[in-house]
């Protein structure tokens, strides 16, 4: 009985509707491209290209669940990317070292955000706008915007395996870690608790500071990791490569069904959000949509699919209420 209601709940959830949207879209694209879009090499290319922003989106998910919003993540990512690239150019190093550097740098900057958010009690949007500008400003001042390239051979000579490992492998690891933390640890429950009702969480003895430190630290670490992937793919480290794409990443998370007021959201939803954005962008080229129409088509597809999703979720809720009344 219990199992059955859990199943029923899933079929009525937002994630299930989103999954349907993704499946329908995949079928439509496959039909429109004569099957090209579902060939394994295309799927791998697509996941590889979107893994960087996917990893960053997973970090954003944590912040939004905790009731905040972070838009400084691309600035944080730019710092991590630059430090990692500088280390490689000057000291050589290997993959383990650059992962540690980019995760460490990202987490460090994230912790600064956390302390500010926790102590100043102003909307997190304002704080992260400020930190974003400060970080970019400092970066611009110290680097004068020079792009870094010409990395050592172990980083610049990509093989199919290394490409897959660094991009899709890292994304999978990030998703699994995030899923484990949110579903299986006390900290995960606390993140939801703080996002759902911060006062109630405080009264239950949750240390809001430790949750903030964890959430923003994690988001920073994810941003740093995403920056590493992007650097590996494009073989360049630059400030402006990441700047300005904040909305793309937030779109992935928000399409994934997270509640912007906090307390709601899942890793599975975010994964679907990432896949949806990737499918749309990749599909536009495979179908041959003219770039003059691209934005219009993407916007229309998102709007239409979410009208249907929203309507279905509402209908399901209404039915639930009716059933409840009948009982």
């Amino acid at each position: 009985m219990n199992n059955k209601t859990a199943k029923n709940k899933f079929f009525k959830s937002y994630e299930f509707m989103l999954l349907c949207v993704v499946i329908v879209l995949t079928i439509v694209l496959a039909a429109a491209t004569g099957g090209k879009s579902i060939k394994p090499d295309n799927i791998i290319d697509m996941l590889t290209s979107y893994s960087a922003y996917g990893v960053i989106a997973v970090g954003c998910l944590f912040v939004i669940i905790s009731g905040g919003i972070d838009i400084s993540f691309m600035a944080v990512a730019a710092v991590a990317q630059y430090l990692m690239a500088l280390y490689m150019l000057n000291m050589g190093g290997n993959f383990v070292v650059i992962y540690i550097i980019s995760i460490g740098a990202g987490a460090g900057l994230g912790l600064i955000n956390a302390v500010l958010v926790n102590r100043l009690k102003v909307p997190t949007l304002i704080i992260t706008i400020a930190t974003m500008n400060i970080i970019y400003g400092l970066m611009m001042r110290f680097t004068s915007g020079v792009r870094l390239h010409g990395f050592p051979g172990w980083f610049s000579q990509k093989t199919e395996a290394s490409l897959l490992f660094v991009s899709v492998g890292t994304l999978a690891a990030a998703l699994l870690t995030a899923w484990f933390i949110l579903k299986r640890t006390k900290m995960g429950r606390r993140v939801y608790a703080v996002g759902g009702n911060i006062e109630a969480a405080k009264r239950c003895g949750v240390s809001v500071l430790s949750v903030h430190l964890f959430v923003y630290g994690f988001a920073g670490a994810a941003a740093g990791t995403g920056a590493l992937i992007k650097c590996y793919l494009s073989q360049q480290a630059s400030i402006e490569a990441l700047y300005g794409d904040e909305m793309d990443v937030l779109a992935m998370v928000v399409l994934g069904g997270v509640s912007l007021s906090g307390g709601k959201g899942s890793v599975f939803g975010t994964l679907l959000g990432i896949v949806l954005v990737a499918l749309l962008s990749n599909g536009m080229i495979l179908v041959g949509v003219s770039s003059y129409w691209k934005d219009l088509v993407i916007g229309a597809v998102i709007l239409i699919s979410f009208c249907i999703t929203g309507w279905r979720v509402l209908a399901a809720k209404k039915q639930e209420r009716k059933e409840g009344a009948a009982e």
């Binding site: 090209k36 295309n42 960087a52 793919l233 494009s234 490569a241 080229i285 041959g288 003219s290 770039s291």
Partner: peptide
């Protein structure tokens, strides 16, 4: 092959677009 594409100022986007175009 298709209308001009706006990806000339972003190397990661140009990489992705090139891969997609070559398949198409």
């Amino acid at each position: 092959c298709t209308d001009r594409i706006a990806c000339g100022e972003d190397s990661a986007l140009a990489r992705e677009t090139t891969l997609d175009l070559l398949k198409t």
